[in-house]
Amino acid sequence: MAAVGIQALLFDLDNTLIDTSGASRRAERQVKDLLKSQYGYEESAANLVIEKFNTKLQMENFDCATGVNVDEERILLLEMALQETDGLDPDHGLATKCYFLWKTTRLQHIHIPEEVKSMLKSLRQSYKLLLLTNGSSMVQREKINVCDCQQYFDTIVIGGEYQEQKPALSIFQKCFQLLGVKPEACMMIGDNLETDIKGGVNAGLGTTVWINNTNLKCEDGAMPDYTVKSVLEVMDILGKKVV
């Protein structure tokens, strides 16, 4: 059954519209190859560096008011990952080289697929479109710029530019205000049960769509109205065809 009464669509960015995880894996391979070919790291050690770096990335939490330089902070995280792996003195130069290789490679492989671009253009003829993404302003703006996202959305909201991010009610209320629509007239589309789906449900959105392409199980308290494998299936939910 198609969703009805929807006037606005809120799209998540990472792993919803763009394959951030895939781009990250490509970047990680480049760093591991560098460590092995030029610095004598064994495969297991190179893998451990990336594992530790990813763990630290998942724990980072930048306050929007502090003006933190994310590049510098992430270089320090990679420096710690290297030191914890090899037990040697900190090597800021190597960490910097590895980090910018990781960052540049990742950005090179971040893009909105052509069929998703067509979908967004088609949907914008009938709905208001808003991009709602968590993360630091600097990191997310870089992705948004490299994907040229501005042309597909009426409004872009980056959680790191506000006091609270998804799943906080306040960030959703900001979206409703910017769009000029009521919560029940909005659909949230995203891949994260906690931030996108629970957040959307708690904010009173009319419909939530969970992008689940890895066959995860739905957690208690996070019951999306629709579960799909691809963001392109939003067209079917809305009963639309790509023009």
Score class of each variant (00 low, 15 high):
1 M>V: 15
4 V>Q: 14
4 V>C: 09
5 G>K: 08
5 G>M: 02
7 Q>A: 12
8 A>G: 01
8 A>N: 02
9 L>C: 03
11 F>S: 01
14 D>E: 07
15 N>C: 09
16 T>C: 08
16 T>V: 02
17 L>S: 05
18 I>E: 00
18 I>S: 00
19 D>A: 11
21 S>D: 14
31 V>D: 05
33 D>G: 03
36 K>Q: 11
37 S>N: 12
40 G>Y: 08
41 Y>A: 01
42 E>D: 13
45 A>W: 00
47 N>H: 13
48 L>N: 10
48 L>S: 11
49 V>H: 01
50 I>T: 00
51 E>L: 05
56 K>T: 08
56 K>H: 10
59 M>P: 04
60 E>W: 04
62 F>G: 08
65 A>P: 06
66 T>K: 14
70 V>G: 01
71 D>M: 06
73 E>G: 06
75 I>F: 06
87 G>F: 03
95 A>K: 05
99 Y>L: 04
108 Q>H: 13
110 I>V: 15
115 E>V: 11
118 S>Q: 14
119 M>G: 07
120 L>P: 02
120 L>R: 03
120 L>D: 05
121 K>E: 14
124 R>H: 07
124 R>W: 03
125 Q>C: 07
127 Y>N: 04
130 L>C: 10
140 Q>D: 08
140 Q>M: 05
143 K>S: 10
144 I>T: 11
145 N>K: 15
149 C>M: 08
151 Q>F: 08
151 Q>M: 10
154 D>Y: 05
154 D>C: 04
161 E>W: 03
164 E>A: 14
165 Q>M: 11
170 S>L: 06
171 I>D: 03
178 L>V: 10
180 G>E: 09
181 V>T: 08
182 K>E: 12
186 C>R: 04
187 M>L: 09
188 M>H: 02
192 N>V: 06
192 N>M: 06
198 K>H: 05
198 K>L: 07
199 G>K: 01
200 G>T: 09
202 N>I: 09
202 N>R: 13
206 G>L: 00
209 V>S: 00
209 V>K: 00
212 N>G: 09
213 N>T: 15
215 N>L: 09
224 P>F: 00
225 D>T: 13
226 Y>N: 01
226 Y>R: 04
230 S>C: 10
232 L>F: 10
235 M>A: 12
236 D>P: 06
236 D>M: 13
240 K>E: 06
241 K>L: 09
241 K>S: 11
241 K>D: 12
243 V>G: 15
